[in-house]
């Protein structure tokens, strides 16, 4: 079997790629995809620990995380469509109405 630490480090690397992606990209849709990468990295950690401890709880949580990701994607993409309708762009730098 592959050691648990390999899975944890892989998910750490994927999570950091997601963090950097959220910070550097300007396209709102790409930011959403980076968030999906982060969610998946956490899911990988949960599954690895669940298999290590032999309890299905972690996998049930991953199931719930997937449901929440679906809901988040639906609402977030609807918000992006509304922003695009009023601004003609999905550039997050232009969405500064509530900026102090």
């Amino acid at each position: 079997m592959i050691p648990l630490s390999y899975y944890l480090i892989l998910s750490g690397v994927l999570f950091s790629i997601g963090v950097v992606g959220v910070l550097i990209s300007r396209n709102a849709i790409v930011i959403f995809m980076a968030i999906e990468v982060m969610l998946n990295a956490v899911s990988l950690t949960l599954v690895a620990f669940s298999q290590q401890t032999g309890s299905p709880a972690g996998q049930v949580f991953v199931f719930l995380v997937m449901t929440i990701a679906a809901a988040e994607a639906a609402v977030g993409l609807a918000i992006i469509i509304v922003i695009f309708r009023s601004k003609e762009s999905v550039n997050v730098d232009e969405v500064n109405l509530m900026k102090w």
Binding site: F15, S16, I17, V19, L23, I24, S25, R26, N27, D93
Partner: peptide, 26 residues
């Protein structure tokens, strides 16, 4: 108009923070 070409300081900061984060996690 897209692609990761924000202000340069922001990019450098983002990569630095990502690297710090990764080192901490590992």
């Amino acid at each position: 108009e897209f692609g990761p070409d924000k202000k340069k300081i922001q990019r450098v900061l983002a990569f630095a923070l990502g690297a710090v984060w990764l080192i901490q996690v590992v």
